[in-house]
Design a protein around this nucleic acid. Sequence first.
DNA 1: CCGTATGGTTCATTAAATGAACCGATGGTT
DNA 2: AACCATCGGTTCATTTAATGAACCATACGG
Lengths: 269, 269
Amino acid sequence: MPLRQASAALQDERAVPANGTGTTDLSLRLLDFLARSAEPVGLSELARQFQASKATIHRHLQTLAYHDFVRQDPATMRYAPGIKLFILGERLRERFDILGVARSEMVRLRDETGHAVTLSTLVDDQVVVLDLIQGHSIVNFGTQPGTVLPLHASAHGKVALAFGPEDLLRRCLARPLKAWTPHTVSTRAALERDLVQIKARGWATSPNQVLQGINGIAVPVFNHAGRYAGGISCAGTVQTIPATPSAAIIKALKRAAAQISRRLGYAGK
Amino acid sequence: MPLRQASAALQDERAVPANGTGTTDLSLRLLDFLARSAEPVGLSELARQFQASKATIHRHLQTLAYHDFVRQDPATMRYAPGIKLFILGERLRERFDILGVARSEMVRLRDETGHAVTLSTLVDDQVVVLDLIQGHSIVNFGTQPGTVLPLHASAHGKVALAFGPEDLLRRCLARPLKAWTPHTVSTRAALERDLVQIKARGWATSPNQVLQGINGIAVPVFNHAGRYAGGISCAGTVQTIPATPSAAIIKALKRAAAQISRRLGYAGK
DNA sequence: CCGTATGGTTCATTAAATGAACCGATGGTT
DNA sequence: AACCATCGGTTCATTTAATGAACCATACGG
């Protein structure tokens, strides 16, 4: 199977690599590629993907492996992401204090509603899923921690737009709004109309926005300074969570959010 | 407060950086340093720590930031670890399938015993904590996910030595056994005696081994091939988990481990 | 108003990253 | 068995690109 061109995986549509070190750039792209690959990848394959010589790739991998960012499967000789990524990633967790205080409330919310519950926050204009409590159904739902959600087409994202930094919407509109499904709100006017409503009622939904048949409902969490600190949401099928959800689930979400906000030092209602 | 010399943080006691790319090496050390720092660090500070020019550090940070491995606090201009570490770290989680199947059993074990429960596995001769379920006590216990445990001085480590790869013990004995406390088993003979007993009875403890007053009890988990796949443990004070633990807790641990092993496809008893 | 921090940039020097060609091993195919 | 095409890894001459001294502009404190 032809893998997607490696360089596209990370650089994506973004403009120029700016003025940095090209060597490091290659190393990081290698690291990213390996972390995104489902299977360990061989040296030659990597050299082909990145259009570099085997010698170059080999030395990069040596250094990455030395720092445990990459490991070589002793049996197949192929390369896989290393444990260091996991270790450093876990260390980053501590920085998001919202994570610790939210956990128990999320579990309670899950038990109340039976739905999968996710926690998100805004990092550098990106909505990132921080934690996930699996729902009480047979099929596993919800976005995994670490996932980046679209600002305009997810419940979490729209909560961030509605209650987050002032100029977030402007930066969001600077690039085209990707239509994930035929139902995705992808025009500026429709999104702004949506946000007015979300601000008024305090919660956002995203029926069929990012995936047909799936819906989410999210509410904001505020910190000690009274500012947006993140969001919590329930996710499920459009059958279980309709576009206009039941008063019960909204109430449960708002209660949980208020509780978390209070624990973060929020003094508001 | 004088920070520890940055270069020592990662290279540690290890011998030579091998033959890799020095540029990448510096980048990775920078990344590691930032991830380990509690607070964001300024450019000049980093240049001093790594004994390199500001220009060099700056360009490295530019590239790291471009890939979201590092972010610059807009207010203080200082540098902090980026969200990419968290994202890639979470992605690594999927690779450890033991994580998914173990979770519910760990929660049940925690509820049964009240103790903090941890899950570990062996990665490149290192025992790494994969998951932690907090105990039901006021004070938070247990080692955080991502932590590397000593092979000879932790319950998890000794389970790995007893039930893991044949030659792990040999490689473990190749370097001196660090004595974390006065009670740490740090002689070859004592360790080997310990392991014989652990193999016979199927569980390991580590009273006062790595921290005075703290004990852990661990049992192995086996995979579909009947080989060691990791371990689960309960942790607590030596008062709550004595050196020779109650039959109840041992039974609970063994039951949970058997259940997880079975879900991993283990056909044994 | 100076002194000394900070983050960031420029540019000539040179150190170091690079790739073509190579090796030894492995594993199918003829 | 001989062959060919892989594989991971290494060598070494070439030249690219990483480097640091010196340089801004700015901010803070006495």
